[in-house]
Each structure stands twice: as C-alpha cells, then as structure tokens.
Design a protein around this nucleic acid. Sequence first.
DNA 1: TTGAAAGCGCTAACAC
DNA 2: GTGTTAGCGCTTTCAA
Lengths: 355, 355
Amino acid sequence: MRRKIVTIRDVAEQAGVSVSTVSHVLNGNDQHVSSEKRDLVLAIMDRLKYRPNAIARSMVKQKTATIGLVISEIDNPLFVPVTAGVEEILRPAGYHIVLASAPDVVSEKQAIETLRSQQVDGFIFMALSLCYPYQHLVQLKEEGVPFVVINRCLQDQQINQVSWDDRNAAYQATRHLLQLGHTRIGTISGPLLHKPPRRSALERHRGWLEAMQEFQLPVPAEWIVDGNYTYEGGFEAIKQLLARVEASHNLPGALFVATDIMAVGALKALNEAHLSVPDDIAIIAMGDPPFAAYTIPALSTMVLPVPEAGRRAARILLEALAHGQEGSAVQIALSCTLQIRESCGALKSRQIIVS
Amino acid sequence: MRRKIVTIRDVAEQAGVSVSTVSHVLNGNDQHVSSEKRDLVLAIMDRLKYRPNAIARSMVKQKTATIGLVISEIDNPLFVPVTAGVEEILRPAGYHIVLASAPDVVSEKQAIETLRSQQVDGFIFMALSLCYPYQHLVQLKEEGVPFVVINRCLQDQQINQVSWDDRNAAYQATRHLLQLGHTRIGTISGPLLHKPPRRSALERHRGWLEAMQEFQLPVPAEWIVDGNYTYEGGFEAIKQLLARVEASHNLPGALFVATDIMAVGALKALNEAHLSVPDDIAIIAMGDPPFAAYTIPALSTMVLPVPEAGRRAARILLEALAHGQEGSAVQIALSCTLQIRESCGALKSRQIIVS
DNA sequence: TTGAAAGCGCTAACAC
DNA sequence: GTGTTAGCGCTTTCAA
C-alpha cells in the first residue's frame, strides 16, 4: 500500500535495539523494557511514521480482533441501529466489524466461509425472523466458533440468541387499543403463509389473537388481512378490507398493524378512502423506525429495542471470546415498550378493561 | 479460530506433493500442474476441509483485496444505497469492504490509521457535504494510497471525486414549479450558516435563486427559511414562514425544499395549519429516500442517483488499484432526475415558461 | 533488561 | 511439471 514500508526492523535498527524490544514497547510490555529505551523507540517510531501491520500480528497471534456481522437484509431498517449497538460495545473492546450481507442461506454459508478464511474471531448474525434451516450454524458451533444470532427463528438451546418478545408486544399493543375502549379490532398481519415461516409475523398475530380471545371479542375473518410486511401490502390490505366490508359496513374501529411500514401504506389507503385516523379507525403498529413519528397522524407503536439487541449480542459474543463457549448458551427475549403518538386517538366512551 | 488448523502443508503431505504444487492449484495456475495431481489435491483439500488463510496470503502478497469505506454518518439515508452500489461493483472484482463510521475529522483520521494498519488496499469516503479540512486526504494521496471521495466539499483537482450536481438539480426543481405556472416560490433551505459550510445546502439554494432570477421573480426574504436539513427544522420552518406572513398574507404558492426529510416536517406543519398540499402550497424536494413516495401527498422530488455514485466511486477505485494513480484524478458530478408525484399538483392557469 | 531465532500460513522465485 | 526455499512483518520463547 505504501512505496516504502516501515517495519519493526527499521525501527529497531534506527534505535539501535533488537526487534523484540521494539515489539515489547509496541505491546506495552513495560516491565521488560527500560524507560529510556522505551522512549527512544517511541520517538523513532514517530519519526519514521511507523505503522504496525495488523495483518502480520494477527498471523502470529492466530486472532484478528475482528468479528463478522452478517445481515440478511441490508436495507432492513433494523440494520443500522443494530449495527450501531454492536459497534458501541465492540469498538471499545478493541474489535472491528466486517460486514457481509447474505439475503439467503446459500450466500450466508458463503459469507461464513469467506469471513472464516479472513480469520474473523466470531460472528453475529442479524436476520429477518425467517425460519431458515440452520444446520450450518450448528456445525459452526461444533467447530468451536463463537457466535450469536439476533432475531432468528431457531430452536437450538445451545446457540446464543437475542430476539424480541413479539408475541407479548403484539398483545400489549392490542391491550392498548382495548384500554382506549376499542372492541372491534382487526389486524394487518405480516406474511402468515410465507415459506419458510416468519416467526415474527406468526408471533405478532398470535399476540393480537390472544388479547382478543382473552376478552372474548369477535375476530371475523374479514378483519384479518395479510400485508406482507411492505408498504404496498399495507396499502392493498386496506383496499381489500374495505372491499370485504362494503356490503356489511362491518368496518373495524381499530387495527393492529404488525409493522410501521404497513401502517404507512394503510394510512395512505385510508386517506384515499376519506377515512380518518384515528377518528374512523385507530391504528397501532410495531417497530418504531424514525419515520413512525413523521406520518400524519404520527403512529402509536410498540418500539423494538433494536440497538439494545445489538449491544446484548455484542456483549454475549465478547464473553464467549474471552472465556470460551463452554457455558450453556444465552437466550434473551427483549421486551418492547409502548410509544403513544396520535394514531390511536383518545379514550372512547365505553371501555372494557381498566388497568 | 479452530482447534486444529489445516494448512497447505497438511494438504501437501496427505497428497504426497509439495506445498508449491498445492499453492498452484489453490491459485488456479493450471499450466503448472498436471490434471491428475490437481484433482488429487482438490480431493484432499475437500477431505481435510482445508480453508485457505486469507491473512497469510495477504501478508506475502502485500495486499488484502479489501477496501475501507468510511462514512461520515451511518444513519444518513444515503448510506445504505451508496454501500449497495459500492458492493455491487467491488464484490465481483473480488474485493471486500470494511466499514468505518467517522462522524468528524478526528475520528476520520483515526479510522484511516486503523484501516491502513489493517492493510486495506484503498478507500472510499462517503460524506455529508461538509466543507471539512482535508489536509489528511492530500497526504494520503501523496503517500500513494488510492481513494475516492463521494459528496464531499473539496477543491483539490488531484483527488478522485464523485458528487451530485446539486445546483442544477435545484434549478431544475424550481423550473418544474415554474412550468406548472407558479411564480411565487419560496424555499426551505439547508443550513446556510453552518460552520463548516455545507456545500449541498449552498448549492441547492443557489440553484433555486438562479431560476428565480432568470425569470425575474421576486424572492422576498420572508420566503427564505432555514430548515437545517431535519424533520424538526422543516416543521419549524413552516411555522416561521406562517408567522412571518401572518400580517401580509403574502404566502408563497410553492416551496422548493432542499431535502425530503424537511419536506416531511413541512407537510406536518402545513397539515396542522389546515393548509393543503398541493392546493394551497405546492412542494418539491430533493433526495428521494424510500419514504418520499409514502407521504401524503407523495413528494415530487429530484432524485439523487445514490447507488450510481457508489458504483462510480467503486469503478474509479478499481481502476486506480489496477493501474496505479498516475493519471489525473477523475471528477464527476452526477445529474439528478425529476420524479413527479403528488406534491406539486397539476398545471396552474397561467404559465410563464413553456419548454 | 535485552537479543537471537523460530515460526504463523502462504507465495514466488528458482532449481531440477 | 514439481520441489526447495526464502521470506512477508510480527510475537514469543529461551538464553544471555
């Protein structure tokens, strides 16, 4: 990369000491070096603009102080805050992050291979909640490579995992609607029929359902519509809902929408239909990306603690890196908090739960 | 990283050949190896689950096939599409990307140091358009390290740069408003008074001004308000504009808003003031992040070709990596295209330009 | 406290 | 074609 590479040997020569002495001051092994020599060496390094070669060091130490962060969808809004959380913990610990995006299992395997040949010390996998096969992860584990997995659907108790408690969050979201006095609550769900299944979509749907059933509220099939986790899906979901109830005029008074982006699409379709949110239909969503606060009306939503997931994952990994993997795996489900904005409106007259 | 590391020597031993033969098949130097031996070696590699050590290879080859991507703001919406564009070009060329976020000059210098000690082969710098000092970049250049800079404010003709033609884009945006028949056009600008200056804010403002002056249209000071490139800034800008014209009722009929996020804030404030977009005020913005299509009304905007900037930067870098830096630097200003959606409405009765 | 020397896993002359 | 060997820049015993 540079014309003339300054090596530890050049420094040693200039300073009139041996390479091992230079190496010692480089690594802060002060007990092995007299302070005069140390200062001298430091001065020479400075003068020569010596830059230690991390590659060479990694080769002998058999570790690189870098970890691989493999992301299933680089344009997922969760990606940036997770990365930020991971960085926040890993950087002060002296680790670097190398990123790989791997939209499917095949490219994930490839990414793992590549990163391993780059000698990363461990991995964090950040996924959609897709229930992919994960045999290769089990194998990674068996080979003794430390890693942790965020937001993935896998049953293995031996694998470090952090995720969100989607079911409970959806339950709480629905309860919020109930507390506001709503009883006619429909849902725009994530892709319930997707193959492979999407854990979060299933769990969120289940949370909504449980809340409804707990209060013995009707959940007509026409109020359940799949929005496929996209803006367009949310938009179409409303169109479809409206078409379904056209004859019956049986419109729900509120909607639990499984992601904010679908809620934004729903808002658009509702607006086109001249239906007001929250007056005609209240909406609560989940996720809380930046834009959730910027819609008209601003979205009430369950906030996923995304950076926290990154931090937790990083800490778990650091622990594994330091003390080996021998302990049993860590499994964490982070809980979400309610962020009340405008899309659910105020208390309605009759209220079925008080809590 | 693994208990027992399989090396090229193990493979050679098992196959009963020399390490150089193994190395040759590893590097696809087929002309130097008989096909029987090659197949044998390949089989052994497979059996032993041999994984080449990229670190060791880089050490001897004096290059790592990785480039450093340093980003000034990781949560800038431009970041992901730029990265995607860079990846698209670099990956097929066999390069890896290591990411560093460096919000200020100091951490940028640090990031450069760190990445250089990791022996990256080159850099791409992706910036806000801040006019930071860039002495360290000049020095990088002098040391012969190839790099290219995206969206940065620097005058050096010797440095590879790709950016957007902000001035012209703003000019075109304003012309769109003019063509629609607007003549009373205000602006919500980026931070014009920021230190260090922000090139894009200045240029966009200038583009608007030039269009207005070209048609000798009035640009009253009360129609120019600083929105600081944020949602909140856009929101407050409208509040302020409304306050300023409260007495005179001298409201502009259209607004050139320098970024979409400010436009979203403006939409909110306008909505609160019961002013309709585009009927009372037309809005055109710049940037075109995903949410620009999702607002109500959807934003007409000048789209910055962000992935293209990433691709260009990557290609320039690849070129420099392959053939050295001896040629003069490449400087590209990408032009933006108009995306018409809803926020400007339809043609008004009288129209001052036809083109 | 200091230094000499043996590698880390791989490539690339250079011999054969 | 194939093998031998000298490093790449650094850390780390082990002696001195």
